[in-house]
Amino acid sequence: MIKSHACLLMAALLAMPTAALSDTLELPADATVNAQVIDELTLSSQAPERNDVILHPVADGHASHTLPQYCVMVANARLDGRRIRLTTNALTCIETDGSESEIYSGEISAAAYDSDGNFGLAACQEGSCRLTPEQTFQLRLASDLALEQQENPAAKLNEQRRQAQGEGVANPIPATRPDPDTD
């Protein structure tokens, strides 16, 4: 039996451990997740640091774990020789299941490692160091991650709306008004 590359990739993704999303989003220390910058990041000797760099997880590569699809991480970037050192400090994820969603937000301590296994990303050429949104790298957690599920105000509003619709009062149809130009 011949399996397509897509089937093999899907099987590999399904076999990959994910953060257990229920009441707590958890990942162990030394877990790796793949990530990308959202906007291009450029550092130079004139601008060797940048705070509040936004990252998002991606499912491609050989990481040990995955995060929910809808996550953003906030990182700081610093030029160190010919490498960009990225360290994360905040994470917010939204996991959806049909019309329900779970929100996790808090601190994360992780650093970017290059494919050579060294801390920092070798992204420098001709005096300029940059990462593009197409480049995938790994973040390695420095400590365990355990974020409790947070209250979701939108879920409460949706529940109230569903209850009101059941009673026939949600989204009322406005009364028609006579057109003032047609008397």
Rank of each mutant, 00 (worst) to 15 (best):
G61H: 03
H62E: 11
A63R: 05
A63L: 06
T66K: 06
L67I: 01
L67R: 11
P68G: 03
P68K: 06
C71Y: 11
V72Q: 14
M73F: 11
N76D: 15
N76H: 15
L79C: 06
I84H: 10
I84Y: 10
I84V: 15
R85Y: 09
T87Y: 03
N89V: 07
L91P: 07
L91E: 04
I94K: 14
E95L: 05
T96F: 06
E100Q: 13
E100K: 13
E102K: 15
E102D: 12
I103G: 04
Y104M: 03
S105T: 10
E107G: 02
S109Y: 07
A111E: 15
D116Q: 04
G117Q: 05
G120Q: 00
G120R: 01
A122I: 03
A122L: 06
Q125D: 05
E126K: 08
E126I: 01
E126S: 13
G127R: 00
C129G: 04
L131V: 00
T132Q: 09
Q135W: 02
Q135C: 01
Q135T: 06
T136V: 14
F137C: 03
Q138R: 14
L139F: 09
L141R: 00
L141C: 03
S143G: 01
S143V: 05
S143A: 11
D144Y: 00
A146H: 02
Q149V: 10
Q149D: 01
N152H: 13
P153V: 10
K156M: 06
K156N: 08
N158S: 09
E159K: 15
E159I: 06
Q160N: 12
Q165R: 15
E167H: 04
G168T: 06
P174E: 12
P174H: 09
R177T: 14
P180H: 12
